[in-house]
């Protein structure tokens, strides 16, 4: 693997509140290379969105404590001056959000908003900027781009707005694109169009993409590598095949068992994870997943209650945060995930 374009090390984000300190992100490490898609998977409160906001420099440092290291192409962002981060944002890194309506101004035409996005980073004339905007709308598959430039956000359908937002994010050819639940609000047929579009654009520009989602189908479709987050921590990290076919963390098993599969037998009962996600104020002392884990009794000496597990490598790419013995984990995984997700390496041979 080439040098990672983005490197996040021991990232921590804490919000002090009246009830105590919320540790939204609690020591997160990962890296993304150019031309790759890294998916960050997790449920509400897992810290996945806060992680992305921290990378983009969107967290108000007056109300939150952010520590660790975020390096974009070698440049440290957390200690950089705000103006410096602002000049990178939109140019070298850009973000698209779940809800395009909240990121498009209802009062200005699409054209005006896109031109502004160009002019923030490029010293070009208005007509040149408008031309760039037009070309980008065309590129993201919006019919009649000339007419659309004059439209306002409310004139467009949800899928079209999402495309406009993607166009806006891509205007300055960012090298890193963070997509936070980019298709969650969309219908499946539109989702398929948007995923296709992101893939085409990546092929063309070689963008590094961080895809934040809870949808394991979208992840399977797009990602090269996956980070699974729970309670603000990375609990498992690996290649897409590691996570889907050789998962070793009980939470990952739980996620995979919770998703109804269109390609499986209908009468298979779902295997949900019992209980609720943890409160980020009073995190358990040992493993964050311990209260919902069915296997903690297999670990001798109550270690899951008392000792925080480290993220330990299984292979150079695959790492797991769990006290269970590796052989034991593999045995349980084989039993839980059954034949449907048996090791594909075996079938390949």
């Amino acid at each position: 693997m080439s040098d990672p374009f983005l490197q996040v090390k021991d990232l921590r984000v804490q919000f002090p509140t009246e009830d105590g300190v919320v540790s939204a992100v609690d020591g997160v490490d990962f890296a993304v290379a150019k031309n790759k898609v890294l998916a960050i998977v997790g449920e509400s409160g897992s810290g996945k969105s806060v992680t992305s906001q921290a990378i983009m420099g969107l967290i108000n440092r007056k109300t939150a404590k952010v520590t660790g290291e975020i390096r974009l192409d070698g440049e440290e962002l957390l200690t950089a001056r705000p103006e410096q981060v602002r000049s990178l944002r939109g140019k070298r890194m850009a973000m698209i959000f779940q809800d395009p309506l909240s990121s498009l101004h209802p009062f200005y035409s699409i054209g005006k908003q896109l031109v502004e996005a160009v002019n923030v980073h490029q010293d070009v004339s208005r007509s040149a900027a408008m031309q760039q905007a037009r070309d980008m709308l065309d590129r993201v598959g919006i019919p009649n781009p000339d007419r659309r430039l004059k439209d306002y956000p409310h004139n467009l359908s949800g899928g079209m707005r999402q495309r406009v937002m993607i166009a806006m994010a891509l205007l300055n050819n960012p090298e890193l694109l963070i997509a936070d639940e980019p298709t969650t609000a969309l219908d499946v047929t539109v989702q398929a169009q948007i995923i296709n579009l992101l893939r085409d654009l990546q092929r063309e520009f070689g963008t590094a993409i961080i895809l934040i989602t809870h949808d394991l189908g979208v992840v399977a479709d797009m990602a090269d590598d996956v980070v699974v987050m729970y309670g603000g921590r990375v609990v498992e990290r690996g290649s897409i095949d590691d996570i889907y076919y050789r998962p070793e963390m009980p939470y990952t098993w739980g996620l995979l068992g919770s998703v109804p599969r269109m390609d499986a037998g209908r009468n298979e009962r779902l295997q949900p994870i019992p209980g609720q996600p943890p409160s980020l104020i009073r995190l358990p002392k040992g493993c964050v997943f311990r209260p919902r884990c069915a296997y903690h009794e297999l670990v001798p000496g109550n270690r899951c209650d008392t000792e925080r597990p480290d993220l330990l490598p299984v292979t150079p790419e695959h790492a797991v945060r769990c006290h269970l013995d590796p052989a034991q984990r593999r045995e349980i995984a084989a039993e839980r995930l059954g034949v449907a997700t048996a090791d594909p390496a075996m079938e390949d041979k």
């Binding site: 019919p143 359908s157 499946v188 989702q191 399977a220 479709d221 390609d263 594909p344």
Partner: peptide, 27 residues
């Protein structure tokens, strides 16, 4: 056909070889 083919399956290997029917235009 379009609807079922558009749903991504939580199975990366199946996804790599799947045929997807893309619909064009809006409702």
């Amino acid at each position: 056909h379009a609807l079922t083919s558009a749903v991504p399956l939580p199975d990366p290997r199946a996804e790599r070889s799947r045929e997807r029917i893309l619909l064009h235009g809006d409702l």
